[in-house]
Every structure is written in structure tokens, then in C-alpha cells.
Simulated assay, not measured.
Amino acid sequence: MEEDNASRPAGHGTLLCVKSWTAYLNTLLLALLLFGFALPLAFRYSELIAAGVMVFAVVVVGYRILVIRSVQLYYDDVGVWLYSGILPWSKGVQGVKWRDMDEATFVQSFWSWLFRSYSIRIGHRYTKGSEIMLTRMARGKDAVAALNAHHQSLIRSNAIN
């Protein structure tokens, strides 16, 4: 896994995929619990408690949505990169350089086919701990095909060994 927070900001390279709408389902369920159950319950006790619950719910749900939206998988001439994070201490990029890439794969199931939301894996030739694993990615199947095709063209042209 190559880590490089400063020189690889999102938006550089070819964007392959982002999180699917299914990635938001857990956050939607949390929002329903907080706004539909906890907030009305808090109003029974006091408006001050309800205001606190409201602020907490907005911050937690908003943060989770922004984190999901921050996930971007892209590639450039050096390798495949995953950008994620919204807070300064959690923003970052991890990746696999083309010369170290093994293969990109996706998990096919009835639900992934139905919702077009795939789990993908970009393997590292040398270490399992350095591979990129993502779940619930929109256009993940197409991203895997594009990555493998680009990787093979680099190998055929002797750009990498």
C-alpha cells in the first residue's frame, strides 16, 4: 500500500467509481431512528434535551453522509488510488502502483447485480495488507474491467514488468 496524502488529491486521474446508493442505507436507518424515535422521545422530557438530540442527530447523520461521499476510486499513470475522508486528520489516499498490482476483482451476487452495487478488490502482488478492498461501489464491475484492461495494456507495452 502506497500512502501519499499531499501529492495525490482527489480529482487527479480518471475517476472509476464512487459509493453506490446502497451505501447510504445504514445511514438512512440511523436517521430514521434518531429523528423518528429519539427526537420525539426527547420532546416528552424537555425541549432542551430535544434540541441536544437534534444537534447530535444532524451532526452524526451529516458526517456519515459526507464520509460516504468522499470515497473515490481513480487511476493515473502511476497506479490505482482510493481517496477518502473529510476531516484533516482522516483525509488520505492509499493505492497500489501499476507495477505492484496483481488483479482487480469484484464479487458477483444476485443483490449486487440487482442493485448494481459491487464489492471490489484491487490486489497487491506481494502483500495482502496493501490491497484495496471496497464495498457497495457503483459501477464497480465496470471499474474492475477498466483497471484490468489498462493494466494488461501496460504489461503488453512493456511499460511495467
Score class of each variant (00 low, 15 high):
Glu3Trp: 13
Ala6Val: 11
Ala6Gln: 14
Arg8Leu: 14
Pro9Thr: 00
Pro9Trp: 02
Ala10Tyr: 08
Ala10Gly: 09
Gly11Asn: 04
His12Lys: 09
Thr14Gly: 04
Thr14Ser: 09
Leu15Trp: 04
Val18His: 02
Trp21Ala: 12
Trp21Asp: 02
Ala23Tyr: 14
Tyr24Cys: 00
Asn26Gln: 12
Ala31Val: 02
Ala31Met: 12
Ala31Gln: 01
Leu32Trp: 10
Phe35Leu: 05
Ala38Tyr: 01
Leu41Val: 13
Ala42Trp: 10
Arg44Trp: 06
Tyr45Asn: 07
Tyr45Cys: 05
Val53Ala: 04
Met54Val: 02
Met54Gly: 07
Val55Ser: 02
Phe56Ile: 06
Ala57Ile: 06
Val58Asn: 03
Val58Tyr: 09
Val59Pro: 06
Val59Met: 11
Gly62Pro: 04
Tyr63Ala: 07
Tyr63Leu: 13
Arg64Ala: 10
Ile68Cys: 04
Ser70Met: 11
Val71Ile: 15
Tyr74Pro: 00
Tyr75Ala: 07
Asp77Leu: 04
Asp77Gly: 08
Val80Ile: 15
Trp81Gly: 00
Trp81Ala: 00
Leu82Tyr: 05
Ser84Ala: 09
Ser84Arg: 07
Gly92Tyr: 00
Gln94His: 10
Gly95Val: 03
Trp98Ser: 01
Trp98Arg: 03
Arg99Asp: 15
Asp100Thr: 11
Asp102Tyr: 09
Phe110Arg: 05
Trp111Gln: 12
Arg116Gly: 13
Ser117Thr: 08
Ser119Arg: 01
His124Arg: 12
Arg125Asn: 15
Arg125Pro: 10
Tyr126Arg: 15
Lys128Gly: 15
Gly129Ala: 09
Glu131Arg: 05
Met133Thr: 14
Leu134Met: 06
Thr135Val: 08
Ala138Phe: 10
Lys141Asp: 12
Asp142Phe: 02
Ala143Trp: 10
Asn148Ile: 03
His150Phe: 00
Leu154Arg: 06
Leu154Gly: 11
Ile155Thr: 13
Arg156Gly: 11
Ala159Val: 15
Asn161Thr: 12
Asn161Asp: 14
